[in-house]
């Protein structure tokens, strides 16, 4: 009788734990879905009033007049993200190659915690660093070098700060990816008479291509959504930027600066929700594209 009870208990416990897992899994699955539906719901009011094309391709932002054109914010976000990736991408790739292929093992042992610390720093610190270091650099040196008188608060400042923020993030993934490529594969290439660089180009990078794409994809999503550090240096002027030295106004800054401030204006609440929806969709698309590339190249 006693033995039966033990078995019963074990089965019961098994079931309880299993149900916990199901619930957690459900939460993870339902959360983004409900977020999406919530944002849709809230921005529906705006979408009723204006066509999607108008919203996306007009740069007229006059909330008082009920005109919400997002082009300025979209362009700012895209520029800041792309330039930051352009800076961070090569740096990460070359650093990761050096650390995993050339450097002595103790260098990586020292660098790994440094990268982790960088990745874990609160983003406001990067923002302060941007104001204290990047802005003066742009205003006093780089701007004048190109013959421009600039304040420094600009798309480029945002991109530089952002690139520094996503470097440790991308770098960590790249290092891990390169370490999973078997040593013997490189040796096979070397023993066929390839140089180190040929081996890196044709074997290491080729083998880890899907991983590199997903690392950059994740970095891009992060950059696109990063708020506070960019907000501190990017200028936040509602004006369609036409150059990297001009101030910009990315989507996350729009939400952070205005939510809760000017909600007395009709539809403003809905307009901000719509920009959140935009962010959500863009990040979703980034993810989908990088997954597609991974799927295709791993075949």
């Amino acid at each position: 009788m006693n033995g039966l009870k033990v078995i019963y208990n074990r089965n019961l416990r098994n079931r309880i734990h299993l149900s916990w897992m199901w619930i957690s899994l459900g939460v993870v699955f339902v959360l983004p879905l409900s977020l999406f539906i919530g944002l849709m719901w809230k921005s529906a009011i705006l979408l009723d009033q204006q066509s999607l094309i108008d919203l996306l391709f007009s740069s007229e932002w006059k909330p008082m007049a009920g005109k919400f054109g997002y082009l300025t914010f979209i362009v700012s976000s895209v520029w800041v993200t792309m330039i930051s990736l352009l800076i961070a991408g090569p740096v990460c790739l070359l650093t990761a190659i050096h650390l995993t292929q050339y450097a002595k093992s103790w260098v990586l042992k020292i660098m790994a915690p440094v990268i982790d610390i960088l990745a874990g720093l609160p983003s406001v610190i990067f923002g302060v660093w941007g104001i204290l270091f990047v802005i003066p650099l742009l205003a006093n040196h780089i701007g004048p070098f190109f013959g421009k008188s600039v304040s420094g608060y600009s798309i480029l400042a945002g991109a530089i700060v952002l690139s520094i923020m996503i470097i440790p993030f991308i770098l960590n993934i790249l290092i891990e990816i390169f370490q999973t490529v078997p040593k013997e594969l490189s040796e096979a290439s070397l023993s066929l008479g390839a140089t180190r660089w040929q081996t890196i180009k044709f074997v290491l990078l080729k083998k880890s291509f899907p991983g590199i794409v997903s690392a950059f994809g994740l970095g891009m999503s992060r950059a696109f959504g990063e708020t506070i550090a960019v907000l501190m240096v990017v200028g936040n002027v509602v004006h369609l930027p036409t150059g990297v030295f001009q101030p910009g106004y990315p989507l996350p800054s729009l939400i952070a600066n205005n939510y809760g401030e000017m909600l007395s204006i009709p539809m403003y609440d809905s307009a901000l929700m719509f920009s959140a929806l935009l962010l959500f969709v863009v990040v979703l698309i980034f993810n989908a594209i990088s997954r597609l590339i991974i799927l295709r190249s791993s075949r």
Binding site: P182, L185, A188, F202, V203, K207
Partner: peptide
Amino acid sequence: LLAQRPYPLP
């Protein structure tokens, strides 16, 4: 060189 396990290039 022929290794213990085959490592075909990617």
